[in-house]
Amino acid sequence: MSTLLQPPFSARSRGQHRQIDADFPPSARIGLLHLLADLVERRYLPDWTVVARELHRVGRFTLVKYDASSVASVEEAREDTEVALEGLEWAKVYDFCERLYSHLPQEIGYEDSYSGYTVEVSRGNIQEYIAIELQRLLLEEDLAYEFAEGVIRRRGRKHTVELVAKSQVVLGDARLLDARRHFDKSLQFFRHSTHPDYENSVKEAVCAVEAAGKTLFPMAKASTLGDLVKWLGGTADVSVPKAVCQTLAGVYAFRSGGEGVGHGGANGGKATPEVTEYLLAVCASQIIYLVDLEGSMEVNIPF
C-alpha cells in the first residue's frame, strides 16, 4: 500500500534527478521526530521511554533507565530521543525505521466486564499506518530509498520501478525460473540500503536476460547472450530490428567488459549507481520484449 504514494509537490518541483543517497539529512530526522510524536500521541507506541531506549540500543548509546510512571522521566526520554536521533549514524537511522515498524507498535484495546477484551486498533493496522508514513517521509525528502514489506531498500526512479514491476509479471512464467532468480539477485544487490553492489547487480541483470533468451528460444542453441543476438539477427523465424539486436549486444558487452562486472574487465566503464539503474531498466525491458517476441511465434491452431 505504501508503494502507491506519490512524491509531494515540493519533491516533484525540484525534480528527482539526484536522489539523496547514503545519508539521512537533518530535515528528514526532524520529519521522523514529528512522526514519532504522532505515534506516541495516538498511543500506537507505548510512550517516549520505549522510543528512547530503542534509539539508544540501535546506536549503542549508554543505557538510561526510565520510569514510565514518572512525568519527569518520560519528558527526559522525549528529550533524549531528539538528541539520539540527531547523533545517530545515517545507516542506523534506517535500522531504527525498520525496528519502529517491526517491534515498537502496540495494539490498542480495552477490557470491560460485559464484552471482555475489545481491540480498537490492531497491531497490523498500526504497522500499516507506520509503513505509509515512513514511505511518505522518504518521498518528501527525495531519499534514494523506499519502505516496503517492512524493510528499507533502494527505490530507483519511477520509470525503473514500473519496468521492473512489469518484468516481474512476465518472469512469473514457470519456464523462466532461472531468469527470475538472476533478476531477483540483481535487485537485491541494487537495493541494499547500506552496501549496494552495482557490479553484481549489472551482472545478474544481464544474466537474467541471457537465461530468459536461452529458455524462450532453444532453437538458437545459444551458449551466451552474444550467441543469441547473432541468431536473432540472422534467423527468419522472428523479425528483430538491427538496432534492437545492437541494444541486446550492448548490455552483454558491458557485462563482459565493465570494470569489475565480468571477465576481469577493466576498461569498459564503471557500474555507477546511474549506469546500474539504467541497465536494470534496459534489462527489464529486454526480458519483456523477448517474452513478447516468443509469443509472436506461436501458431494458433483452429478448432
Score class of each variant (00 low, 15 high):
V151L: 05
E146L: 05
K92D: 12
E210Y: 06
L163Y: 05
P26W: 06
K230H: 11
D178A: 15
A68R: 12
F217A: 06
G226W: 00
T276E: 02
H192A: 14
T224K: 08
Y278N: 01
A72W: 06
S69Y: 08
S2G: 14
P46Q: 13
L232S: 03
E75Y: 06
F24W: 11
R123E: 15
E89I: 07
Q19I: 03
F254E: 06
K158D: 12
M297G: 10
L293T: 10
G265V: 10
Y252V: 09
G15W: 06
I288R: 06
L216P: 05
I152V: 15
C245E: 13
S113K: 07
I30D: 11
I20H: 10
E128T: 11
M219I: 11
A148F: 10
D47F: 03
A208I: 02
Q16I: 07
H34P: 00
L225S: 13
S256Q: 10
K92P: 00
H103S: 15
E128W: 00
R255Q: 12
G124Y: 02
T49M: 03
A148R: 13
E120N: 12
D95W: 13
F183Y: 13
E54S: 09
P218Y: 11
A266V: 11
E204P: 01
I126V: 14
R181S: 12
W231D: 05
L279K: 04
